[in-house]
Nucleic acid binder design. Structure first.
Length: 239
DNA sequence: GCGACAG
DNA sequence: ATCTTGTCGC
């Protein structure tokens, strides 16, 4: 077979992308299959600048949340932003950043949905299946589903339902702040996902791993963009 | 047909 | 996500 069809899975049409999601969604594991105890957690996120996408990954020790190392990867913007197809736009850069880490995270905390997705394959689940690693989705807003406002206290939760299915939990990670939406990514169950997110909170609305990855990706995009430098990432590298 | 719509 | 100033609260 030609390696192009295998490695560049994101270079597809919107219809093909949705079809691939339906297929990969069947491979998502919603049961707890993680190393015990969790020693290394990595936060991942992406930012845009100058027509490129900056994927970032930050690895931290558990339970201290001390940073071990971080990495950034740059890729050109190829797939457009289409609600429900975010992973086809951001995952290539994020996977490349993950690959350059020298440590192997036990689990990934992703900025975005896990199975709280129309076809049950948000970016967290997609990356989990592709990399065969446990993942948790932690989004700042909902893509689908309905919920109630959780009590205004740290750790309070409220279920998120979509089509009669429990797809996520609204979680209050900080008093007086809007909740975040935690969902199963891959190889974890919902209770564990919520617990991990809470154990990663250090005063901010976003759990530390995600907050740091968000910050790193933004700084990388910003600094590269205003140096008049518009990096031309190699197009032949596979994430 | 109309509105909603992760980042 | 990104474009952008000041402002309210802990």
């Amino acid at each position: 077979m030609s390696d192009g069809s295998v490695t560049e899975w994101w270079r597809v049409s919107v219809a093909e992308a949705m079809e691939l999601q339906r297929r990969l969604a069947q491979q998502v594991c919603q049961e707890l299959r993680v190393p015990v105890p969790i020693t290394i957690v990595a936060g991942i996120d992406a930012a845009y600048g100058g027509g490129n996408i900056y994927g970032a990954a930050v690895a931290l020790w558990m339970p201290s949340l001390e940073v071990i190392e971080s990495a950034v990867a740059v890729r050109p913007e190829e797939f457009p932003y289409v609600p429900g197809l975010l992973s086809f736009r951001e995952a290539p850069a994020i996977l490349m950043a993950l690959r350059s880490l020298h440590v192997r995270p036990d689990i990934l905390l992703c900025d975005g949905q896990g199975i709280a997705h129309p076809r049950r394959l948000g970016i967290a689940s997609h990356i989990g299946v592709l990399a065969n690693i446990p993942t948790v989705g932690c989004a700042k807003s909902l893509l689908c589903g309905t919920t109630e406002e959780p009590p205004n206290a740290f750790g309070a939760t409220a279920p998120v339902w979509d089509q009669e299915e429990l797809v996520a939990m609204a979680v209050r990670t900080r008093r007086n702040a809007k909740p975040v939406y935690v969902s199963v990514g891959h190889r974890v169950d919902l209770p564990f996902a919520v617990d991990l997110v809470l154990r990663c909170c250090r005063g901010s609305r976003l759990p530390e791993p995600v907050r740091l990855a968000d910050s790193l990706s933004k700084h990388a995009a910003r600094s590269a963009t205003m140096d008049g430098v518009t990096p031309s990432p190699a197009t032949d590298k596979t994430p």
